[in-house]
Each structure stands twice: as structure tokens, then as C-alpha cells.
Nucleic acid binder design. Structure first.
Length: 271
DNA sequence: CAACCGACCTGTTCGC
DNA sequence: TGCGAACAGGTCGGTT
């Protein structure tokens, strides 16, 4: 569920309650949620560590701790993080809890249990193979144009490939392609320079706007750390709108499957 | 190199 | 009302 804008919003929301605090102890009822090291080592290594800074890379949250440790979390489809008073009742989907030194808890709730937690000294061990940050200055029309020359892959699955660009997910890929008026089924190497330009601009625009709106909350999915919803879902042009008229040209939005993911686009104005 | 599919999990919605 | 199928913001690994 959470893509780059959701993760960015969560990072921003966790800084105030976490930075400067330290971990007294931690507990889990689903040790598989901890990818590395093993749960026993994880628990003893994180005990006493203080939060120095919180940042994001792609869809990963990076908690820099003292003494050279880094807590890294990926929320996958249904992961949620919150900081609440220790006495707050936890529902059955809260699987890992960090007790803080101020009688609050950092809690990781995850209905589908796909999310993962890492504790590493070198973040590159987890993040090393991620592609460009789409909001960085390195993500330019020229870069996109050059990088797509030899790639015969279908465009949308390429945008979802985190080793290519890190942070775009299923919603914002569809929204950005619609904004750029590019058909998601196109081959990457068929992009013209002009299209590479409109696509980089559209990706930036959509991600920036989604961050402004504090992410997209659909159903019981993504929530900000304080439990409230984002509002980007009110601005979707195509995602989840199969059968409805396109807001740009009134064509009927189509829903197809690409690379195993549901894909929404307007066949009348995306070429 | 690329496309496809099952795994990993649980909950909700849809169609009959 | 009931019940199975389909579907869900993500990623990895194995197989064609």
C-alpha cells in the first residue's frame, strides 16, 4: 500500500515523537517480521539504542540509531507505524512493539504480515540495489531517455521496478502515465525525448502533490502515524476508476492487467 | 534479458 | 443469507 509519498509522510510524522527517544525493550509475536538479525540478537542489539534521525529511501524507512546501528523498515502492502502511550490497547494485528523511554511505544501493525524489519550497521546491505530517487536532481528527462534506449520492457512494469527508480508504486505509476498521456503498455525504448520529458515531469508532479496531500488512504490501508488519513485518493484521475469517464477527455477508463498488476488508463488520450 | 507465476498473508468485496 | 472467487498501495525467487 504505501508508496513513496506515504512513506515520506510517515517519516515526517515520526521524527517529532521519536528522535531523541531510546528503546528500552522490544517484543514480537511474529518473529518472521524481523528479517535480520535473528530475533534474539535483534532484541539485545536494539535495547538501549537512541533514535538519531529518520529518513527515507524508496519505500524504506531508515531509523539511524546511536552506536552505528540502523533500523530499517519496509511496510509492504499493509504495514502501519504509530507511536502511542504504552497503555493504549493493541489490536491483534500489532506484531512488533518497541517500548520507548517515555512510556510510549513505537508499534508495527501489519494485517498481511508482508512487512519486514532489519537492524544493520551498513544500510547499503538492504538498500544497495535500489534505483534513482525520482524526486532527486539526478532524475532528469535525459537520464530517463538514455536509460530506456536499450530496454525492451513494457513501460509501466519498468517504472515499478525498484532497481530502476525507487518509490513509484501501482497507484502513482498509473497516475503519472495518465498525466503524461503515455500508454502504460508502450515499450520503454519507444519513448521519444519529448515523452521522456513529460513523463519525468508528470512523475515529479504527482509525487509532490501526493506528499502535499499526505498520501492516499483507501479502505483500512495506509494511515499517518497519528492514525489520520491522507487525502490524495480524492485526486485520482484513473486509479480505481475503470469504466468511469476520463477527467481529461471523457473517454472511458480501462482496467487491464500488466505485469500482474491492475492498471488503469484512458485509451483515448494516452498514446 | 524479459515475461509470467506462485509465495508470502489476511480481510473485504463481488457474483451467483 | 451463504459461499467461493477475486482482489488488494509490494517484492522475491524460480521457471520458461
Amino acid at each position: 500500500m504505501p508508496e513513496l509519498p506515504e512513506v515520506e509522510t510517515i517519516v515526517r510524522g515520526l521524527r517529532q515523537p521519536l528522535v531523541g527517544r531510546s528503546v528500552i525493550d522490544s517484543f514480537t509475536d511474529w518473529p518472521r517480521q524481523i528479517d535480520r538479525p535473528t530475533w534474539d540478537k535483534f532484541r539485545s542489539r536494539i535495547k538501549g539504542r537512541a533514535f538519531r534521525s529518520i529518513t527515507r529511501r524508496g519505500k524504506y524507512l531508515i531509523f539511524e540509531l546511536d552506536q552505528g546501528e540502523n533500523l530499517i523498515i519496509h511496510l509492504k502492502m499493509t504495514g502501519q507505524l504509530s507511536v502511542v502511550p504504552r497503555e493504549t490497547v493493541a489490536d491483534k494485528h500489532v506484531h512488533t512493539i518497541f517500548n520507548l523511554d517515555n512510556n510510549f511505544d513505537l508499534r508495527f501493525r501489519d494485517v498481511r504480515k508482508f512487512g519486514r524489519i532489519y537492524l544493520v550497521r551498513d544500510p547499503a546491505e538492504v538498500l544497495g540495489s535500489l534505483g534513482l530517487e525520482p524526486l532527486s536532481t539526478a532524475f532528469t528527462p535525459t537520464w530517463l531517455y538514455e536509460e530506456t534506449r536499450q530496454r525492451k520492457r513494457v513501460l509501466k512494469p519498468l517504472l515499478l521496478d525498484q532497481h530502476f527508480v525507487a518509490g513509484i508504486g501501482n497507484i502513482y505509476a498509473d497516475e503519472a502515465l495518465h498525466r503524461a498521456q503515455i500508454n502504460p503498455q508502450r515499450k520503454a525504448n519507444s519513448l521519444s525525448k519529448k515523452e521522456a520529458q513529460s513523463l519525468t515531469e508528470a512523475i515529479r508532479y504527482i509525487l509532490d502533490m501526493a506528499i502535499d496531500q499526505e498520501g492516499s488512504s483507501i479502505d483500512a490501508g495506509y494511515r499517518k502515524p497519528d492514525g489520520s488519513s491522507g487525502s490524495m485518493q480524492a485526486h485520482f484521475s484513473v486509479y480505481g476508476r475503470g469504466g468511469e469517464p476520463c477527467p481529461r477527455c471523457s473517454g472511458i477508463i480501462e482496467r487491464i492487467v500488466l505485469g500482474g498488476r491492475s492498471t488503469h488508463f484512458c485509451p483515448q488520450c494516452q498514446f
